[in-house]
Design a protein around this nucleic acid. Sequence first.
RNA 1: GAGGGUGUAGCGAAGUUGGUUAUCGCGACGGCCUGUCACGCCGUAGACCGCGGGUUCGAGUCCCGUCAUCCUCGCCA
Length: 599
Amino acid sequence: MSEELFSQRTTTCGALTKADDGARVVLNGWVHRNRNHGSVHFINLRDRYGITQVVVDDDAPAELAALADSLRLEYCIAVTGVVRRRPDSMINAEMSTGEIEVKAEKIEILSRCAPLPFQIEETTQAREELRLKYRYLDLRSKGMQDRMRLRHDFILSMRNFLASRDFYEIETPTMIRSTPEGARDFLVPSRHYPGKFYALPQSPQLFKQILMVGGMDKYFQVARCYRDEDARGDRQLEFTQLDLEMSFVTREDILALMEELFVHVFKEVMDYDLPANFRRLTYEDAMNTYGSDKPDLRFDLPLVDFADIALKSSFTTFKQIAEAGGTIKAIVAPASEEVAFSRKYITSLEDAAKVYGAQGLAWMKVENGSLSGGISKFFEDQEEQVLQRTQAGEGDMILFVAHQSWRRCCASLSAVRNKLGRDLMLIKPGFEFAWIIDFPLFEADEESGGWTAAHHMFSMPQQQYLDTLESDPASVKGDLYDLVLNGYEVASGSIRIHDVELQKRIFRICGIDDAEAEERFGFLLEAFRYSPPPHGGIAPGIDRMVMVLAEQSSIHEVIAFPKNTAAISPMDNAPSEVDPKQLEELHLSVIYPPEKEQE
RNA sequence: GAGGGUGUAGCGAAGUUGGUUAUCGCGACGGCCUGUCACGCCGUAGACCGCGGGUUCGAGUCCCGUCAUCCUCGCCA
């Protein structure tokens, strides 16, 4: 019935301008608003491109007027009519199409709409649960439409840039051998081979390295990755990365390429000028100065070391921790008009610190040029030194965390730093990128007492540590790099190992003997026997980056069909039970946990 | 595995030290309206206050349990 209408479709609701005055058009869209003034109707017709006002004039046939009256919100309709300029007094400067309107000659209802579970507005008010259940309605909102467009533009811009640099986009399989990299694998049972499973990739890591062996010296892929771990606001169990790998490169080549890429993309997509080179911090400096390996550099507020001063003070709590080799750091909260440093506020900062293991948050203030309150009385003899070290000024507050663990001390104060940044309105608008480099290659595994790869087992140790890998794993730094944006880790990469023997050494340090390495990663080791090129790569997280660009705090806002934090998709109700026949074919039977027994 | 927040009409919220009829805005439905554009005006319907139990003369409000959801720790490059 509507083929004729579709075939003569000439425009979209956002495209009309005064230049179209007099044109006969067909507009397809959804009824966004319907204002009935008795014998004149105004219908705001909406599609992906915008909104156009359709008018049913008082001279319209009764039939058309009645039809207009019967339209309900979100009906999908086709309007045939003539574009006309609005009289000057009726121009709506707020609308991109506000200079024109379409005088309707014919309206066809293409489909009706059931009662809406929530209203479709620029920013949907409904709680997320509902938005996800009726995602198709939520996607009609301007906010979601804008974010989907931003995501598209962002990915397209990256693709175009990389294509212009001779990269091939190559797909790698999503059903692979299980080679857990740290996270839990999602498994897919094999029908043909009872007891065997495919795994969904946590990243295309091994395949992209093998592509390098295959001579595909510049590869990228917009890759879906899967990790069966608990979700967070910036973490989903499936997510999308721009996976990238290059042969014959050093770290500098990768960093330079990424800087060029994002300078290009931010200009093209956001019209935002990034610096040609991003700031660099070593992991150790980032931790020591900001307490985090993903610091938000839109504000400064550095941490300072305090253990040496604490040792000389009369504050036994600090002295004991310092003497035992623990870490004591301080941060200065600058005097602010936003927040009074009340007991209550200090407690809220302390709560933020305690989440990351701090036992408490000590404090003192600078009043009339000297230290007062909190633990200041223990530092009477060190006053000058404290002021000098912290650079605290009049009205500022100095906050301290002491902890046996350097990491926990850093992490706790980082939480305080981030809260201060927000509360004291210190965060500058814009985008602050930074590279975090020189990560440790190994970290102690508390469970086994051995070592585990801090990043993954395929990263190259830095040259100067090659002789001391086994004797001193703790101090080995890798050719590893993270890209940080506004406090989020948005990319991570490394130069890879391409030498079988070196790779085996790393495996051994991580507790994987040669036999197990052969069993699990034999195909990689085999590939490395055939003249592998030196190579390295990186993988920017697309969801997180678009989230930051869209000024959102949850990646749900930039994913068309996200799962919730309980790993459920409220729209299609995944995961679901399956037909027993399916299980039978897959040679599976389900053992339910005792308290959740099914019928 | 753990901690915290939230749950009141279709949606978003208010609801005081426990008190009689649970408010408000939007939406829906009906009516009026010739220029609106978040149109306006008049009217109507719509709530097992997440669910279960308890305390009480009386519970949306207090207690216990439970479910859902969000945030976070652990976990996750």
